[in-house]
Simulated assay, not measured.
Amino acid sequence: MAVITWSEMMSVGVPILDADHKTLVSLINNLHRSVGDREEYATLGSVLKALEDYAEHHFAREERVMEVCRYPSLEAHSRMHRNLAKQVRDLKSRYDLDRTAVRAKDCLTFLNKWLIEHICSTDMDYRAWVIGHPEALLAAETMSITGIRPNAGGFSWNRLSVLVVDDNENFRRVLQTILEGVGVTNIHLAANLDEARALLNAGGIGQVVTDWHVGVESGLDLVTWIRGRPDLARLPVLVLSGHERMAVRDQALAAGADEFMEKPISARGLLICLARLIREKGETP
C-alpha cells in the first residue's frame, strides 16, 4: 500500500482545516514507513496516540466551524466523527492492552480508507458553507490541540526552533509531524550525538528533544554536554525513553534534563510539555 500524496483536490478550501488534514495524512504515512521497522511497536503506539489526539482536536474544530456557519448537516457529520474517533480509540486500546496485538500494516487499510473518504467525500459537503465565512475561520483559528490559544502571552510555535535527536528515522519523522502540526517550521533532526552537537554549535536551537538510547550512545551524555556549556545552560531539554521507571526518570533529571517522557508519546502531552518548559525557562520564542 503506497503512502498518501496530498493534492489540491483534497483541499476543503479552508487553510487551517487543510493543515489538520495534512497532519493526519503525514501521521498515516509515518505508520506506513514503520512497517517492519525494528522499533515498529514504539512508533505505532506514538502514531496511534497522535492520531487519537489530532482526530479529537480536528473533529472539534470542524464542528465548531460548521456550527458557526450554520451548516445544516452538522449533526450527521458529528455522528460520523464520533464513530471514526471510536474506531481509532479502539485500535489504541488494543495496543495498550498488548503491544503485539496490533501491527502497523493491520491499521493501514482502515486508516487510509477512513481519511480519504472523510476528506474527499463527507468534508467536501461543507466546503461551500465555510469558504468566505470570516467568523467560521476565526472560530477555527482560536482552537488549539494544547488548549493554548495562538500567540497567547506572546507564545508562537512558528518562532520555535527544535532539535530532535533519535537514531530511528521513523520516530524522528513522527516527532517532526507532531511539531509541524502546530506550526513549528524550524526543526532540526539528528541521528547521533555528533550531528546533534554540530547543530547545537551552529546556534539558533531553542529546545532539544532526545531519546535516551541513540544507537550505542546515550542521550544523557548529550544532556551532560549541553549543561557543561554556559551558552546552553538554560536550553530546555526533554528526554524520551521506552522505559518508564522512577529510577530512569530520576537519572535523566539528575543528568540535567528538564523533563522526561515515556515512549510511546501522545502528541498533546508532548506539545504541552514543550510549551511549559519554554515558559518555565522564561524564554518565550
Score class of each variant (00 low, 15 high):
229 R>D: 15
203 G>L: 07
5 T>A: 05
197 R>D: 01
219 G>R: 02
285 P>W: 09
4 I>L: 15
21 H>R: 07
35 V>N: 12
106 D>E: 15
21 H>V: 01
63 E>M: 09
119 I>H: 13
237 V>Q: 09
173 R>P: 02
213 H>L: 07
182 V>I: 15
150 P>V: 04
221 D>M: 07
160 L>W: 12
149 R>H: 08
158 N>K: 13
156 S>R: 13
285 P>V: 07
130 V>Y: 13
102 V>D: 09
44 L>M: 08
45 G>Q: 12
55 A>G: 15
254 A>P: 01
141 E>P: 02
35 V>R: 08
222 L>C: 06
88 V>W: 12
135 E>M: 14
17 L>H: 02
98 D>A: 06
1 M>L: 13
183 G>Q: 07
243 H>A: 12
150 P>F: 11
196 A>Y: 10
203 G>C: 06
118 H>M: 03
91 L>C: 03
277 L>Y: 03
214 V>W: 04
135 E>N: 13
121 S>Q: 15
138 L>K: 14
67 E>D: 00
141 E>L: 06
167 D>H: 14
84 L>H: 13
209 V>A: 11
139 A>Q: 07
205 I>Y: 07
114 W>F: 12
108 L>H: 03
280 E>F: 07
100 T>V: 11
209 V>S: 14
182 V>L: 12
97 L>P: 00
29 N>P: 00
3 V>Q: 03
7 S>Y: 05
122 T>P: 02
277 L>W: 08
142 T>C: 09
47 V>N: 05
34 S>F: 00
139 A>R: 12
28 I>S: 04
236 P>W: 08
206 G>P: 06
169 E>K: 15
246 M>N: 09
88 V>N: 02
198 A>D: 12
173 R>D: 13
174 V>Y: 03
42 A>N: 05
74 L>R: 14
273 C>H: 06
177 T>M: 13
152 A>I: 04
226 I>H: 09
223 V>Y: 06
151 N>G: 05
100 T>Y: 11
81 H>L: 09
220 L>W: 12
264 P>E: 12
60 A>F: 02
37 D>T: 03
278 I>M: 13
115 L>P: 04
13 G>H: 08
30 N>S: 02
3 V>P: 00
173 R>C: 13
169 E>L: 14
199 L>M: 14
184 V>T: 02
206 G>W: 04
209 V>Q: 10
24 L>W: 01
105 K>V: 04
143 M>W: 06
204 G>T: 08
148 I>F: 12
146 T>W: 10
3 V>G: 03
63 E>W: 05
229 R>V: 09
146 T>Y: 12
82 R>Y: 00
126 Y>F: 14
231 D>G: 00
73 S>V: 04
22 K>H: 04
68 V>E: 06
114 W>H: 05
26 S>A: 10
8 E>D: 13
229 R>F: 11
123 D>F: 15
242 G>N: 09
193 L>M: 10
281 K>I: 05
101 A>H: 02
14 V>R: 11
232 L>G: 10
280 E>H: 11
150 P>C: 05
274 L>H: 09
243 H>C: 05
108 L>K: 04
133 H>D: 09
29 N>C: 00
256 G>M: 15
284 T>D: 08
206 G>Q: 11
218 S>A: 11
56 E>D: 12
243 H>Q: 15
183 G>L: 10
273 C>R: 15
5 T>G: 02
233 A>P: 00
110 F>L: 10
133 H>T: 02
164 V>D: 10
189 L>K: 04
122 T>D: 06
128 A>Q: 15
